[in-house]
Amino acid sequence: MKTEKEFIASLQNQKTRELAFRDLVKEYKERLYWHIRKIVIDHADTDDVLQNTFIKIFRNIENFKGDSKLYSWMYRIATNEAITFINKRAKTQQISSEEIKTTMVNNLKADDYFDGDEAQIKLQKAIASLPEKQQLVFNMKYFDDMKYQEISDILETSVGALKASYHIAVKKIETFILEH
């Protein structure tokens, strides 16, 4: 079993890069997929963003300094790609990214690739009503059960601020569910 350092070295070596990258994709495609899916909602969009994420990882792996963990670095790229995607679409349609997200969540019922119930749709609506950063923190903590330190490494925000953001997000979601 390779250590992370050895694995990164094989990713950065031209000779071993492609093989190592295939392993990297196998290892992370599902986790990154679900992370992105919770942000962009639609499956086809998630697929686009996931592919772009891996392409950026491939292009930039040579420059990865190892200051953060590979996992955090990739999550950061995926998050950035997903948010950029939503923002671009919002710009094209000349509405806000919040409106895009709300519209998509409102269409979940008709989505072939969603089979959640009314309560789950309501929870998604509540999440969509949060500011972007709180959405991220909430998803990563509530659904993925990530440690604050991990989220902190990915979002480059202090643990204290994340705890506060999560606290606020939870209270807002509670209020949203009560009022709707």
């Binding site: 079993m1 694995f7 392993d23 290892e27 899916r37 499956h43 690739y113 089979d115």
Partner: peptide, 21 residues
């Protein structure tokens, strides 16, 4: 096997209400 060790809390059985083709 490899990098998984660092994130034992992430399971491949994780289920979200979204499905995939």
């Amino acid at each position: 096997l490899s990098l998984k060790d660092e994130h034992p809390e992430v399971t491949l059985e994780q289920e979200t209400g979204f499905t995939v083709p």
